[in-house]
């Protein structure tokens, strides 16, 4: 009998690693990095302890939103190859537990960010979590092909939160950093949707590739990539930017636009023939684009401090 009891208990005995996976650490790393840059390039400074605490609670809030997303999307995550091994769809973490962790950590992150920094930063974090969970996950994701365009706002808030944590206000520079991630999100996810082929279709998620066809998605990738250029250059030429940012913006945008044009011109048969090599390369390049862009803002901030 004891063995039977142990076998039954094992079904819902997650490891600590499962809890960490529930918080989507890879997404969290992008959130932390962009929020950190927002905090460091702002024209005000926090005590190191406050800055570390702010980063930790922003990361915790992002992780909590990820857990709530995983709880709500468990049904479609279990269908898609890319997501079926996540803790909830694979049965390693019970849905109720994911919900409890998501709600608990969301509250903790918002309250603690407010206490560590200020009410504006905490409010923006609360808006971000709500936007991602309610507006994107529960409302838009299963209803409209514009899901990731509008839902992308949730991922765009972190540098603004970092800026607000340092300054207690939101300025044009913070809005431009928001805009940079907002315009970057659609090409990033549509490139993924192109090479994940039938994943979204099988799960019934109305991605642009499913509702309007793959050629339309290719055209949209190019359109959003072109719209990204002025935002990137505006930031690089503004107070947050500098020579490093400008050089990075010119080089990265040239590469990104070149990749988008290539994707736009490719017939589906050719892409299928080479295993979506260009789409995969564009997806990887999009990650570098964002990391290097924000890295360049950070480098310029260091140069400004040094001089």
């Amino acid at each position: 009998m004891p063995d039977l009891a142990i076998s039954a208990a094992q079904e819902h005995e997650p490891t600590f690693g499962d809890y960490v996976a529930l918080l989507k650490p890879r997404v969290m790393s992008l959130v932390v990095f962009t929020a950190l840059v927002g905090l460091l390039v702002a024209p005000a400074s926090l005590h190191a302890i406050e800055a570390v605490a702010a980063m930790l609670f922003i990361a915790l809030g992002a992780g909590a939103a990820g857990a709530l997303n995983m709880w709500y999307d468990a049904d479609i995550d279990s269908i898609m190859r890319r997501t079926m091994k996540r803790p909830v769809p694979s049965g390693r973490v019970a849905p109720d537990e994911a919900l409890a962790i998501g709600i608990g950590l969301s509250g903790l992150a918002v309250v603690m960010l407010g206490l560590a920094t200020n009410v504006l930063a905490a409010s923006l974090l609360a808006v971000t979590i709500s936007f991602y969970v309610v507006i994107y996950t529960m409302w838009l994701k299963r209803r409209t092909p514009q899901n990731i365009v509008i839902g992308g706002a949730a991922g765009a808030f972190p540098p603004m939160i970092g800026w607000a944590a340092a300054t207690g206000s939101v300025s044009m520079e913070a809005c431009l950093m928001f805009a940079l991630i907002f315009m970057w999100t659609p090409p990033h996810f549509w490139a993924l949707a192109l090479f994940m082929r039938s994943d979204y279709e099988n799960a019934g998620v109305p991605m642009l590739t499913v509702t309007h066809g793959r050629p339309a998605a290719r055209r949209h990738i190019l359109a959003y990539t072109l719209l990204l250029v002025p935002v990137s250059l505006w930031l690089a030429l503004g107070p947050v930017g500098g020579p490093v940012s400008l050089a990075a913006a010119v080089v990265l945008n040239l590469m990104f636009v070149r990749g988008a044009v290539q994707i736009c011109m490719r017939p589906e048969a050719v892409a299928q023939g080479d295993g979506y090599a260009a789409e995969k390369a564009f997806f990887r390049a999009s990650l570098f684009y964002l990391f290097l862009h924000f890295g360049a803002f950070l480098a310029d901030a260091v140069v400004r401090q040094a001089s």
Binding site: E13, T15, F16, Y19
Partner: peptide
């Protein structure tokens, strides 16, 4: 199972 619980408790 006990080893798994221990690692989880340690993490928490």
């Amino acid at each position: 199972l006990h080893a798994r619980r221990f690692s989880r408790n340690l993490g928490v």
